[in-house]
Design a protein around this nucleic acid. Sequence first.
DNA 1: ACAGATTCTTAATCTACCTTAATTCCATTG
DNA 2: CAATGGAATTAAGGTAGATTAAGAATCTGT
Lengths: 191, 191
Amino acid sequence: MAYDLILQNIAKHITLTTGETNHFISLLKPEAIKKKTILLREGQLCNNIYYVSSGILRAYHLDKDGKEATIMFALSDWWITDMFCFVNQQPAMLFIEAVENSAIVALQKKDLDNLFIEVPSFERFFRIIMQNAYVREQVRVIQNLSLSAEERYQHFINKYPQIVKQVTQKQIASYLGVTPEFLSSLRKKDK
Amino acid sequence: MAYDLILQNIAKHITLTTGETNHFISLLKPEAIKKKTILLREGQLCNNIYYVSSGILRAYHLDKDGKEATIMFALSDWWITDMFCFVNQQPAMLFIEAVENSAIVALQKKDLDNLFIEVPSFERFFRIIMQNAYVREQVRVIQNLSLSAEERYQHFINKYPQIVKQVTQKQIASYLGVTPEFLSSLRKKDK
DNA sequence: ACAGATTCTTAATCTACCTTAATTCCATTG
DNA sequence: CAATGGAATTAAGGTAGATTAAGAATCTGT
């Protein structure tokens, strides 16, 4: 059924009783969303964290010149939100959009806050999720500071071959912090 | 006493019983370390997470050309470790050194793992610590992608005036991802 | 208090990556 | 299936920031 994947995702880190599982499921809002649907816009309140069941989402920031910076891609089995704004209930800095038709599961901030109290093992689950996310971003900072654009591109295609298949080069360029023109010239050199 | 600060730090997010507090304290190893002491070197196992009681630590990465990239500064009341290597028990990618004489409290990986089981509210505490660390790194990625070196420097001195007083310009340059020469020229322009 | 080592500054030169613009290639929609 | 608009490519010219080198300022250890 529709909740299989998300329950397996959770079972990687914690064990729930049947009652806890049912309570958790009662909080979830599954949704099928079309390609290009925008789930969150800059300036809005960010009330949801999303689990991606299938498809792929992208979070990006628009700078003062209207240039996009891709903050993350979320493939199937990933969690995504504008964490700063979700946690602090501030207006969003990020846009979150579906790159392809996707199936997602939404969990609301207030429900998650209650869940932490009612089922404390979710503290462990999200501690691990946050820990992994922190490590990921830290490695990215290291790479941004110490590698050339070409090296970052090579790492990206090795680490995320699946993403390379599903998104445009323009989006990859905006993740790496280069222009699409420059990425194109790197790819040409490669061959 | 010596544990006041760290207990206050924890009390911001969770409440402990007297027994839990004593158990927690029994796991801590306070240390006074001199300026330039290196607590962790690249390639070593990273068995400790450090709480900074006073002074300031710095985590940095050395790239293949021997160039330093500063990953974080930890002022008093901050937690710091090479999180990837601490969590996954892999050889460290980072060096951690004391920028000034500092007082720190070390907590070992195995003790923290047990603490999560014996005092589950520490899951909440570290969930929040990890969440904040994730958000911080994500904001840094956004700024690296969408701001010029000059804008990043302005943000840095506004956000961390205390750090500016305690570290060299060379270290700030390596945090911002520019050369000390270029940072110097930015500072000149400013006035 | 001095010598040696870092750090900071300045300036000239260089380069990785950007900007602009034109052309081709797709994918979506009517 | 034609039309349209975005994506990718190519190329010329431009700039933020790197590199190199040298001198001045500051810190460190004895």
